[in-house]
Design a protein around this nucleic acid. Structure first.
Lengths: 199, 199
DNA sequence: GCAACAACTATACATCCGTTTAGCAATGAT
DNA sequence: ATCATTGCTAAACGGATGTATAGTTGTTGC
């Protein structure tokens, strides 16, 4: 009863995909076409289950009357204790409801965000409390701001490329100025800095 | 042929409203119900006209197959030459596709954005090229960042309230430090700072 | 073994929905 | 005066859509 079965999770993921690509939730028969079902009742049953478990609400007797209840957004990962960002995606505490396509991130599954702690990037005008949206799997350029995994902690650094060699420059005196970039986990390339000014 | 008739503009506005409130475009008959039409052909005709004029695209034979082509966003007003932000809304050159509700702006018609020029707000860590999202009609608090109209030019200032009197503090040496805030046009209160890092 | 549940198939129904055909009234341009 | 455009009504068609009924298969828990 609690939690989603693999099939239900797949249907929910398909609905989310369609909202990304077509901006419209799918119909029952479009769900059937995606999964090869031969009866619309199959998709309808999954929607009933997803609604009963609180993942979506339906407008009865309305075409495409599906509304997702858990709002979709970009996961905001605070200080990452260990592992890749993908591992921390499960703990979706905070979500940033901004379309990553605004900042040139085409695949939203590669987008994540970090809340900046401390003055690691004062030199690049990124300050404590700012939120940085990053793209994982992207290739950084010279002087790109990247999130790097050092000592099991994720910190922002400036990526440098010179004479075919790559370095990371820390903008914080607590870290050494230059760190070789190979053998390091670069988790993502920063695409935007967002600062919310509370009223 | 060029431009929208008042009726067509009303239908387009209704579609935009429905996308905001229900996240789904309306059906032809829902448009009829809104405007009192007694035949679905009336709404269908308007959709054909709006499609022909390039404001939307339709998925034929699909329920709610309406996609807006001109993406909705927050107007980005550069340096405002004169007048209120509302006057400049007509020149929607750039649009910021970020939902203002993320930053606590409930009514999106009150949201607008400014691209920061110069170092007017270095003291508040807002730099040249940053985009500031603002809310018009809001009441600023002590030390809120506001856009004020001075000498027919829109600039960012810090709003100060002390002993019942209100002042504006410029964070740029080119302007006087303190300006009385009454008799001045405060165009909006800054809610967020956004910096796009190009790849 | 048996009940409960998940995950479907097959068929069917009533409604929803986009579209078509035909026509009317008002307006403005040629 | 005539024609084109806009903005609708009326009626209807067929595909699209959500839902219901009845049944099948396999898995899990007791």
């Amino acid at each position: 009863m609690i939690g989603l079965t693999p099939t239900q999770a797949a249907v929910l993921a398909f609905i989310e995909d369609r909202l990304d690509s077509h901006a419209l939730p799918p119909t029952c028969r479009e769900i059937c076409a995606r999964f090869g079902y031969k009866s619309p009742k199959a998709a309808s049953d999954h929607l009933v289950a997803l609604e009963h478990k609180g993942f979506l609400a339906r407008d009865p007797m309305r075409a495409r009357g599906i509304r997702l209840l858990k709002p979709r957004g970009i996961p905001v990962l605070g200080t990452i204790a260990a592992g890749l960002p993908a591992d921390s995606l499960a703990s979706r505490d905070h979500q940033l409801a901004i379309d990553p396509a605004v900042f040139g991130i085409k695949d939203r599954s590669n987008a994540f965000a970090l809340r900046v702690q401390g003055d690691s990037m004062e030199g690049r005008s990124i300050f404590d409390g700012d939120i940085v949206m990053l793209e994982s799997g992207a290739t950084p350029r010279h002087e790109s701001v990247v999130a790097a995994l050092i000592d099991n902690e994720s910190t922002l650094k400036t990526f440098l490329r010179r004479d075919g060699k790559t370095w990371l420059r820390a903008e914080n005196p607590r870290y050494p100025d230059l760190i070789p970039a190979w053998d390091l986990q670069i988790q993502g390339v920063a695409r935007a800095v967002i600062r919310h000014l509370p009223p």
